[in-house]
């Protein structure tokens, strides 16, 4: 295996990674013990990804990596080398909220908002796999994240509204 000189460790406990974040690719030098969540927040500067528990229980840190929702507190940044990462900042385009975010707002699916980015990223990944048609499917889709404020009803309503409108668009086209 040829050694890429630019990637040779300048400092022993750091590594170069190359990642695509919300569509733009860049190289970063990361400390090996740095969690992906701390990397996204503090090194990339995207503060929309939140940290609640830092041990995998709450889902606040959920991001999408190569199309799959994962806990960014349970991965090291160095492990994401070569992957494509999506965070909540990638959802709105030119300041215009995505339809799912619109539905969240319209259905009072958030109160303090601390959990919201994690829920959105879990749901974006889930909705790419197929529509959510029933309340029980909606609750299943929400089950990997915790919200301490809303009681989830607003989120269930937002998901069903969203899924219906995606279906509607498909059927009408």
């Amino acid at each position: 295996m040829a050694v890429d000189e630019s990637r040779a460790d300048p400092v022993e406990d750091k590594s170069w990674i190359s990642v695509t974040i919300n569509g733009s690719k860049q190289d970063y030098l990361v400390e090996q013990r740095l969690s992906l969540a701390d990397f996204i927040r503090n090194q990339v500067g995207l503060k929309g990804t939140h940290l609640g528990c830092e041990h995998g229980s709450c889902g606040a840190c959920t991001v999408i990596i190569d199309d799959r929702a994962v806990r960014s507190c349970l991965m090291f940044a160095v492990q994401s080398d070569g992957s494509s990462i999506e965070t909540v900042e990638g959802l709105a385009i030119d300041g215009v909220l995505s339809p799912l975010q619109e539905s969240f707002q319209a259905n009072h699916a958030l109160q303090c908002g601390f959990c919201t980015s994690g829920f959105l990223m879990s749901l974006v990944a889930r909705l790419r796999e197929g529509p959510i048609d029933t309340e029980s499917e909606a609750r299943e889709a929400l089950s990997g994240n915790i919200c301490r404020c809303t009681g989830y009803s607003g989120m269930v309503a937002a998901i069903l509204e969203q899924s219906n409108s995606i279906q509607g668009i498909k059927e009408n086209s």
Partner: peptide, 13 residues
């Protein structure tokens, strides 16, 4: 909390 430092190895074989 955050992990303590460690040396990281990532073999491909």
């Amino acid at each position: 909390m955050k992990s303590a430092p460690f040396k990281y190895y990532v073999p491909s074989e």
